[in-house]
Amino acid sequence: MNNFVTKKNFILADELATIALGKQVAEIVKTELKQGIVVYLNGDLGAGKTTLTRGFVQGMGHIGNVKSPTYTLVEPYDLADWQVYHFDLYRLADPEELEYMGIRDYFNSNCCSFIEWPEKGQGMLPAPDMIIDLVYHDEQRQVSLLAKTALGQRLLSMLVQ
C-alpha cells in the first residue's frame, strides 16, 4: 500500500474560491503530473461543477469564455500543449450516443476531461482519476475530492487550500 492521500474535503467560500481550486488543479497537472486526467464531477444543478471546470480551463491557458456544454454534450478547448474537454451528460438519453460522437477519441495522455453527470455515460467512459463532489453548504460549497488512481492520488497529495 502506498502513502498517498486518497480523499480531501474543502469548504469554498464563493465562486472565486471555486475557480481558484480549478486553477490550482490545472497548475498541478501542467507542472507536476504532465499528463492528462479524467475527472468525474457530481453535484446538483448549480452546485459549481461548471465553475470549477472554468477555473481549470483558464488555469490551463484558455483565454475567453468557458460555457456549460449542456446542449452540445462536450465543449473542447484546444490549447498549446493540451486538449481539455468539458462534458455535460445531463441531457444524454442513452450512453450509446457517446459512441456515435467518437467518445474514445477524447481520452489520451495530453487530454484532460471533466465530466458532469458521468452516471449517464456509464459503460462508455473511462474510469476516473478523480471524483469531485460539490454540495451547497449554507452560502458556501463543500467539495470532496476522491482519488481513484495513482495519478489522482499524486494530484490530491499536492493540492492545498
Rank of each mutant, 00 (worst) to 15 (best):
M1P: 06
M1C: 06
F4M: 15
T6C: 03
K7D: 08
K7R: 15
K7W: 01
K8H: 04
N9C: 12
F10S: 06
A13D: 15
D14T: 11
D14M: 09
D14Q: 06
E15W: 02
A17P: 03
I19M: 14
L21K: 04
G22W: 01
G22Q: 05
Q24N: 15
K30Y: 03
T31E: 14
E32C: 09
Q35R: 13
G36S: 06
V38L: 00
V38G: 00
Y40L: 00
Y40K: 04
L41I: 01
G43H: 07
D44I: 05
G48Y: 07
K49D: 09
K49F: 08
K49W: 10
T51M: 09
T51C: 12
G55T: 04
G55Y: 03
G55H: 01
G55D: 07
F56K: 01
F56M: 11
Q58I: 10
I63Q: 13
I63A: 13
N65G: 04
P69R: 02
T70V: 03
T72E: 05
L73A: 06
E75H: 08
P76G: 09
Y77W: 02
L79V: 02
A80F: 07
A80I: 11
D81M: 02
Q83P: 01
Q83H: 14
H86C: 05
D88Q: 08
D88M: 05
L89Y: 10
L89H: 12
R91S: 13
L92N: 08
D94P: 02
E96I: 15
E96M: 14
E97I: 02
M101H: 03
M101N: 04
G102L: 09
R104L: 05
D105K: 11
Y106M: 04
S109A: 14
S109C: 05
N110E: 11
C111R: 06
C112M: 08
I115R: 04
I115E: 01
W117F: 08
P118T: 10
P118W: 09
E119K: 15
E119S: 15
K120E: 03
G121F: 01
Q122C: 09
P128W: 05
D129F: 03
I132R: 04
I132C: 07
D133E: 15
D133L: 07
L134A: 08
L134D: 06
Y136E: 10
Y136L: 11
Y136C: 09
H137R: 11
H137E: 15
E139V: 11
R141T: 10
Q142V: 02
V143W: 03
V143L: 14
A147M: 10
A147Y: 05
K148L: 13
T149V: 06
A150V: 12
A150D: 13
A150M: 13
A150G: 00
L151S: 09
L151K: 14
L155N: 01
L156G: 05
S157M: 02
M158V: 00
M158P: 00
L159M: 11
V160Q: 07
